[in-house]
Design a protein around this nucleic acid. Sequence first.
DNA 1: CCTACAACGATTTTT
DNA 2: TCGTTGTAGG
Length: 818
Amino acid sequence: MTAQFPIPGLPTPPGADSLVDKGDESPRRRRRPSREELLEGLNEPQREAVVHEGTPLLVVAGAGSGKTRVLTRRIAWLISERDAHPGSILAITFTNKAAAEMRERVSELVGNRARIMWVSTFHSACVRILRKEIDKFGFKSSFTIYDAADSKRLMTLVCRDLDLDPKQYPPRSILNWVSNAKNELQDHEDASKDAKNGLEEKYAAAYTLYQERLRQANALDFDDLLMMTVHLFRAFPEVRETWRRRFRHVLVDEYQDTNHAQYALIHELCADSLEDPLGLSDGAGTSGGERIPPAELMVVGDADQSIYAFRGANIRNILDFEQDFPSAETILLEQNYRSTQTILTAANAVISRNDGRKPKNLWTDSGAGERIVGYVADNEHDEARFIAEEIDKLGDEGGTRPSDVAVFYRTNAQSRVFEEIFIRVGMAYKVVGGVRFYERREVRDALAYLRVLVNPDDQVSLRRILNTPKRGIGERAEACIEGLAQRDRITFWEALQKAEDAPGVASRSLNAIRGFVELIEQLQSMVDAGERADVILEQALTRSGYLKELEDSEDPQDETRVENLAELVAVAREFADDPQAGPSADPADVPDDGPPPGLRDFLERVALVADSDQIPDAPDGESAPGVVTLMTLHTAKGLEFPVVFLTGLEDGVFPHLRSLGDKPELEEERRLAYVGVTRARERLYISRAIVRSAWGAPSHNPASRFIDELPIDLVDWRRTADDQAVWSRQTYSLPQSSQRRGSLTFGTSAARADASKKASAARDIPNLDPGDRVNHDTFGLGTVVALEGMGDNSVASIDFGSEGVKRLLLRYAPVEKL
DNA sequence: CCTACAACGATTTTT
DNA sequence: TCGTTGTAGG
């Protein structure tokens, strides 16, 4: 039978939760807030949403309208006023960070009982459901979750096996296609059928093989997690009923960014009219024909902030909510508590250009505020310089702290200029996003070791570490093992274990393989013995020689890698000490079979939790000056800052080049602009550069069309294109021809190449003093902190800002004094 | 089997 | 400009 849950029926008798709650005597435990407290400070529609009962509810929440507050208050209301068991609540958030915050805030209101709510992303929730029902769909509980990078690698292998020309069939685009099919809940057979009707047959073939490989590897990719859960519910109505019975209250945040699979999942759990044609829930021995009312559903979102269509989010989900759930009611939150009227007017003006949206008008009673400041820069450096100066000025004149300021850009690559300038002027900053911790090579290598220990079927990880660090198992040997695996129909790991049966393996390689197998088996026995995740990780890194290879390396980058691995060990240690913290803290979750949960859970956490730790916490009231935050517009969703710089407003940059020809995509860009504008509380700056160097060559970009969409009187232009034109004419008096521009570019890069060649040939050791600014080929701009040694052996410690402080041997280091 | 270097290509957003 | 992939040579 399926798992038993604490609450088979509803409502839960008061006090039943003490069965689950393990005797926490903290004062917060059973807090019961008054009704007044729960409704305090809310406006009329917000209150309505909090106390709403029964029918499905759509809350259309404009930017800054306090939707997070409404969600947390409602949950507290459910628990406190309506005696809902916390375990019967499922709240879906967009990020894990948001989930943690929500759980925290609800706990503040009703006490630690809230810890047993399910507050998580769709993906985390699905993993937890799948783990409970693992026996139903033939996976081992040790399954691995493949992230985007793993999927890509696997697809690349698949394409190679199918002999697909990567030019004609790029794995990237096949993967996209497959991902879409999965989002639409088409398994590979459905998709193949479609494909044979004239669509891309090769794509379907790749899908089939890709899926087969995933199965063999005992792995699920991100799309699988959702698709499998929906399929599970459809294939086993009694399972679905169990979960429908468990979750009496379902709340979904950021509903505009749900995709079809997520929509279907909600539907399975909450739709009223789910037929039970076979009467299976009876057959499964549940309480006779008694009808289980659907869960109370509340979704919250704003169609104007839908910015994830590119990864399958379907804006229709929110637009058609009332049709999908016929009894649904809608509450509109239009009063904004975040921004000035100027900012809101600007935002409204931009977004109103989109077709087919339901009209919505944000308003505030907090006054017009400052005008928007505009700046047209000569180039991207000038833009960054202006922003740095302006932040400085705001601090001097208005007491604005760096932590009050955010700089937004469209693509991650744009952050570099800001970093360079900010380092030069000594302004503290933080880049959120970008190269993420868990995507660094060394971290992925380390995790691959752990994954293999938990799930040796995971071929992608296994082959990744097979010869990392170099241990003399090359391509040839790997191919032989692969051949053996296919011939004997065993897994790659099993083939490795009896490598001596594989024809054609050099004895040298064979020894290496034996050593590797022994290493893995030793580590596995540690896992079986229930050793802590951090200890296993450390052992894996040292015994494999991975750490040593990095430590012995001359490459200064490898020093950082060692630090990153230490960081990873620290993360694992923290997890081992307190696995209860975070998303999977549900006492009702009993570990299933399989390896000890420690390591497995750690990997699961790592796979599902993007490093939300970088996202700044809500501005603390402290006087700590903090740092300026740099991030992409996508990352900015859900955050707010007193001062916002919206940069790179150029056609081709933002809106992005690839969206210019396509109306839906352009509208998504416009929504992105809307999101950006509405992040600002008090001051908004918009800027663009006349000339921007995009991957080497400078390009001349026209103003973004979004600028023209702003009401002209709202913007105070500090510097306009006309100012720039005068400057430009004076500086470049020659008539411009494209040829000249071309040769200019060529000349510059050739000269640079020449100069760097000379520098390395002459081995000029720059004469440095502490405090000097330098430029390093890979680390960028930095400041000399200290010097040691003489002549050829002089070593400089240089602070590269976000890259950290490096010790560099000046004889080799490509540093240039500025 | 490994290293070093050259050429190439691709550059949006991410749970 | 970057990082990855392919190739040649040790």
